[in-house]
């Protein structure tokens, strides 16, 4: 293996190369952020249309708070995200510990855990729709939660596993030798080590769940009782665009970005997984 070294820093390159690299970065960041920035700016536009700036206003945010459909969708999303994250965090963490402690790296097992992260959403969505309707299960928020746990669990598991790779299991043996019960060992030894990863994984799962649309769309039941925010947003986009959506989009983005930033702080490099 090569030693871990970084590429030549820009400072050591020729001025021309440096300028080119900075130019590339600026263009890419402009491409990534201009569309988002435009949305956020428009959410404060009195007229609400992209055609003209007609003055700063918070009225679209105010009108959101009066939109019962959006409020109920937001509440549903929160329920789905919180419950599915809680279940997925518990199951995903236990799975990660189970695998890493026993060093069971079967190919089938790896595939099973990897699959929810790579299967096209539409395939998992129709699979769950067929499954629920064949079992005659009435669909609703509970079926969305069941579905969201599937991929959330996989993400939590991989985040926690990454942390456990460097964990020295002999400590737990030592703890057991000293007479600590399995539970005490877990609580006093293992948990403190993996806690940042568990929380990071949970925040990641929460973000994914808040934003997930396709699977929820197929696994939802009748009506408003199981309409989540992304489903509401999709309907709003399809049914003529009202300026309210800019305000809603800005809020949703702020929530996701905050959760992700927290997750990143807790566990460096989590984004990549």
């Amino acid at each position: 293996m090569l030693p871990k070294r970084e590429a030549t820093p820009m400072a050591e390159r020729s001025p021309a190369t440096r300028r080119t690299l900075w130019l590339v970065l600026s263009l890419v960041f402009a491409f990534l952020y201009i569309p988002i920035a435009v949305l956020v700016a428009l959410s404060f536009n009195e007229g609400g249309l992209p055609t003209a700036w007609s003055g700063f206003s918070l009225k679209w945010y105010a009108s959101l708070t009066g939109n019962s459909e959006i409020l109920s969708a937001a509440l549903n999303t929160l329920i789905v995200a919180l419950v599915s994250t809680a279940i997925a965090t518990l199951l995903g963490t236990l799975l990660a510990i189970g695998i890493e402690m026993r060093r069971q790296y079967g190919k089938g097992l790896e595939a099973l855990i990897f699959a929810p992260m790579i299967i096209p959403d539409i395939v998992l969505a129709i699979a769950l729709l067929s499954f629920f309707s064949m079992l005659n299960i009435t669909m609703g928020l509970h079926t969305i939660i069941l579905a969201h746990v599937v991929f959330n669990l996989a993400f939590v598991c991989s985040v926690v596993r990454a942390r456990l790779k460097s964990f020295d299991w002999s400590i737990t043996e030592a703890s057991a030798d000293l007479g600590a019960s399995a539970l005490t060992t877990f609580r006093r030894v293992t948990l403190p080590v993996i806690l940042p990863a568990v929380v990071a994984g949970a925040l990641l799962a929460f973000t994914l769940s808040v934003d997930e649309f396709i699977i929820a769309f197929f696994a939802a039941g009748a009506g408003r009782a199981s309409t989540t925010l992304p489903m509401q947003i999709y309907a709003m986009i399809r049914f003529g665009i009202t300026p309210e959506i800019n305000a809603l989009a800005s809020i949703v983005m702020a929530v996701s970005i905050t959760a992700l930033t927290l997750s990143q702080r807790l566990n460096r490099g989590v984004i990549g997984q």
Partner: peptide
Amino acid sequence: TTPRHRSLKISSIALGFALTLSAPAF
């Protein structure tokens, strides 16, 4: 679908009974 001007009106009416509707909706 509801025309824009009307949807605003509807939202405000909806707000009126949103509170009564939100809980028993289930």
